[in-house]
Design a protein around this nucleic acid. Structure first.
Lengths: 239, 239
DNA sequence: ACCTGAACACCGTTCAAGT
DNA sequence: ACCTGAACACCGTTCAAGT
């Protein structure tokens, strides 16, 4: 719950942006800026989910009209890319410092997972634009570690991008789960619904899925994610 | 280009649905059905891209009104899930038959890649709803092979879902690339633009990205994808 | 230069009215 | 039962008008 630096950071900042009349009045005295827009975007996405972020709600949050936003960002896509990149850089920067490269890789991956857990809308966003800055930041962080690990020159990009794609795929599924969940119900109920659907599939055409259905409800997403990281790490070191 | 069974299949079917007046008149004599809606959906997505599929264009394509669609599917989300699942099952079914499990895994993964290549809109769709049927179908296909490979019982789900997430992540990036591309320009121009952006990043904060930027333009997406599959396969077998 | 908010050109979905 | 298409409640974005 609290293993995300960026989550707590933005949580602290968010008191400034509470929709109380006092703070809203204080807010209007400061001019709009891209920074302010990104902060408000992250706040709304975290608190109310992806569907809640429209240029109308964002503008209302900042006590202005939707048109004002276009003086600081070119489009909603640019705003979302900037918000995602912000969250990912905070996560990656906060996880650096490990000396052992294997530990560093796990720490970085875990930090990214925790950022996605705290801001599940990122999962959908990273898929919306290809090779956006947030994705390149991950490639850089992972690639540098694989190089330190002594992975051969040509394999460095292969292994790093494999890990990046794995993270993106998991982030996407995670975000989709959070979206269909609404922010209230807990994740176990969602997983229970998933296994319920799995059990209703024909057992002879889906034997594997049936065999893993039991026990899936109480599986630990974070542990599961890190297990996948270790599979890729083992594969990278096996040549 | 032609390594996708589903692609050619739907291409052949698509003559029925050409927007010529004759076929459109012939079409109206047949009642609407979910099957027909799915076929038309895939057709429009393949030919015109994700943005072109609206319930208005789909209805016009079938010479009816948008409301008629709701007699056969509950929502646009359901229609897209069904379309994705259709494409994935055709791809997976067409790739079965390999006896050697390692060859089978590579063949299945390649078939899924080719399906994504032929229908890039799938990449975005698979991220839209969590654990939708198309994703479960991949989990089943991969999981069964990992079991055959002798992966330990507890690791079977780990390794299979790692591979599924990797495929989903790559599919998402691929689809995003295809979307920003428009369907006409070739992929090399897109990759050139990506590396151009990479080169403009600060070289001291992005040393790894800079080091892999050269040569990235002419990299082979399919080969790259299969290299990642082999990394995960090696990791799965390394314990 | 920056902001405002009505207006434009769309969406997915609903629903009264038809056959 | 199935279809039709106008209407509803929204979007992101634009732009004339203000300060």
């Amino acid at each position: 719950m609290f293993h995300d630096q960026s989550g707590t950071l933005f949580h602290r900042v968010s008191r400034w942006h509470m929709p109380s009349t006092t703070s809203r009045r204080r807010r209007r005295s400061v001019p709009l800026s891209k920074e302010r827009l990104i902060a408000a975007t992250i706040e709304i996405l975290d608190a109310e989910g992806e569907d809640a972020l429209t240029f109308r709600t964002l503008a209302a949050h900042l006590s202005t009209g939707p048109g004002a936003i276009y003086h600081h960002v070119a489009s909603k896509a640019e705003l979302l890319m900037s918000a995602a990149s912000r969250v990912i850089s905070v996560a990656i920067d906060g996880s650096s410092g490990e000396q052992n490269p294997v530990a560093a890789l796990r720490a970085t991956a875990a930090a990214v997972f925790d950022a996605i857990d705290a801001h599940p809308w990122i999962g959908a966003q990273l898929t919306r634009e290809p090779w956006q800055l947030a994705v390149v930041q991950m490639l850089e962080a992972f690639g540098r570690i694989f190089r330190e690990l002594g992975v051969a020159k040509l394999a460095q990009f292969n292994t790093a991008s494999t890990l990046v794609h794995y993270v993106l795929g998991l982030a996407g599924q995670y975000a989709a789960g959070a979206r269909t969940l609404g922010s209230r119900t807990d994740r176990e109920a969602f997983l229970l619904g998933v296994t319920e659907q799995w059990r209703q599939l024909d057992a002879s055409t889906y034997p594997f899925v049936h065999s893993v259905a039991e026990g899936f409800e109480q599986h630990d997403d974070r542990k599961q994610f890190l297990a996948g990281v270790d599979v890729i790490l083992a594969g990278a070191l096996s040549r």
